[in-house]
Each structure stands twice: as C-alpha cells, then as structure tokens.
Design a protein around this nucleic acid. Structure first.
Lengths: 157, 157
DNA sequence: ATTATTTTGTTTCCTTGTCAACAAAATAAT
DNA sequence: ATTATTTTGTTGACAAGGAAACAAAATAAT
C-alpha cells in the first residue's frame, strides 16, 4: 500500500472511529435523541435561515431524508419553521427553547470530546496543523471541480 | 472555530466528498452492483479467511447487516462460503470466478481515482505525508484506548 | 407578458442497516 | 466432566435513508 492509500485509508478509519465512539457517547447522554437529530439541531443553530436544501447539501443526504428528519424534529418540538414575506417557497428552521436545551447539552458533550482528545492535539505543532489544513483545502477544491465535471456530464446525457 | 475543529471538520467533509463522488462513479461503471457490495468483495479478496465478524468490525457495521449482505453476494454468485474441518462454527468467504471479475474492474477503477487525484498528491512532500500518517496513527491509537474504556464501562453496568 | 426551466419541499415505495432475541458451537471456569 | 460464559452467525421487526415522481413557487428565456 502506497502512502496516498495509507493516508486516505487512515483517515477513513479514524473518521469512522470518531463517529462510532461519539455517536455511542452522545446517545448515552442524550437519551431519546439520535445523533442525526442532534447534528441537525447543531447545524440549524449555527446557520441562520437554514432550510431542507442547505441541510441536505451539508450532510450529503437527499432532500427527502432531511424533509422527514425535520418533520420529526418539529413534531418533537425541538425546531420550528418560518418563512419570509417575500418568498412563499423556501421554508427555514430555527430552534425552539426546548431545542436550545438539547443544543446546549451537545455543546458540553463536544467540549468533553475535545478534552478527551486534548493529549493528541497538544503534540501537534502549528506547522503540522497548517500543513494538514492546506492539504485538506487543496484536495477538497480538486474534488469540487471533479464533482462539477460530473454534473456537466450527467446533464449532457 | 479552532484548528482542531477545522482539521476534523475538514477531513469529515473531504471524506464525505470522496465517498459521494467515488460511489457515483463506481455505480456508473459497475452497473447492477452497489458500492457496499463491491467494498465487501474487495475486503474478502484482500483478507484470507474473512468472516461475518471481521467484515463487521472493518466496516463499522453490525454482524446482522453483514450477514444479509454476504447472503446476497452468495445468491448473486460473487462469493462462496467455506468452513474448516476443526471448527464447525465460523464461516469464511472467498471470491468466485465471477466475483474476481468484479474485483478486477474495481481495481482498475481505483487506479483511475488515483490518477484523477494525482495532481493533489504530487504536491505533497514526503515530510507532509509522514506527518499526517503519524497524526492518524496517534489519534487512532488514542481512540482505541477510549473505545476499550467504554467497553469496560458497559460491562460493569 | 407569456412560456419554459429550475428550485424547493414533500410523499410513496423500496432498500439497507440496526436492534434484539435466538441457537449452536467454542471456550473458560469450577 | 460439567456448567457457565462468550463468540459466531442468523432472523424478524423496525427505522433511516435513497430514488423517483410530483406540485408549487421562483427564475430565466423569449
């Protein structure tokens, strides 16, 4: 296995581990709430005027899936929808008071995760951080171009 | 957002992009086969005596899900199961000739992906590679310990 | 201004994966 | 040797998410 593969596979495995471990811890603390619901709440709080489409793009999910998820969150009383007077099509979301409680608990949990992993990050130099960030940025931009290419291909079919 | 978050979020987004883009390309080339099926085939070919449990651990999925997936692959004639004379419990998998054809196509596709992303990796120095790999390794080991801790907690409940 | 295209959100059907319970075999404990 | 525990794979009920078709609104094209 060459280094490119090692990096990709390494990050894949690392990412899966983080997701798996945090998901478990989260559903342990926030009983009754799925990690997908909590992440949705997190995004809505951090991004004003978020709607189904933006959530779907961010989470790499279909609009259909997000539509169902947000409906469930409304039913649970964690978020509410609103519209703007000059647009009768787009539907935005914001947290309810109850939703903000969940958000706060999640925030604390997040800090707990950071504390848990502090030892690892403390050993990383500023140069290493910047090097990794630059790699991520370059690769990400490259893939964006490839995705754009694919969209064009699909349209011309 | 601090650098730790930037790195984690950056890799999360990068990983999602790669998965999303490659999945699309893969299901375009290997029509009739889902990316999950192909990945399963890939693992079976690369790891002798792979069974349901090992596959589940590798893919961070439940044994139930893998059990269904492998049954489907057997039905499709891509893999076959076998046992060893000294163990009547464990069931292993290997590829059929037809499965090897799919594996080969996937390999070629993989090379195509590497070629596609070559430009990005060419700009990475040996030091950057090693720095990233060392980070991944350290973080991964740290999480393994945390996962082990959690297992103990769950057992003592 | 009218028509065509795109965007946005929803719903239905279907696939995939989880969860929990289970049986059979292997291993550990006594 | 016998019993208890753990490991392994399977199943059925259920939930989450994707694909495609759809209507309504917004935007672009003419």
């Amino acid at each position: 296995m060459n280094k490119e593969e090692q990096v990709i596979m390494g990050f894949r495995d690392l990412y899966n581990k983080i997701v798996w471990l945090n998901k478990d811890k989260m559903e342990e603390s926030l009983k009754g709430f799925k990690s997908s619901e909590v992440h949705c709440i997190e995004y809505i709080e951090k991004n004003v005027d978020s709607n189904v489409t933006k959530l779907a793009e961010y989470f790499y999910m279909t609009r259909g899936a997000i539509s169902k998820l947000t409906k469930k969150l409304i039913k649970k009383g964690l978020i509410e929808s609103y519209q703007k007077s000059d647009n009768k099509k787009e539907i935005y979301f914001r947290l309810t008071e109850q939703g903000k409680v969940i958000y706060k608990i999640h925030e604390d949990l997040h800090k707990e995760f950071q504390e848990r992993d502090k030892a690892v990050f403390d050993k990383i130099t500023e140069e290493q951080f910047d090097s990794m960030l630059s790699f991520v940025e370059k690769y990400s931009k490259h893939l964006d171009q490839e995705i754009k290419k694919m969209d064009i291909d699909n349209k011309s079919e």
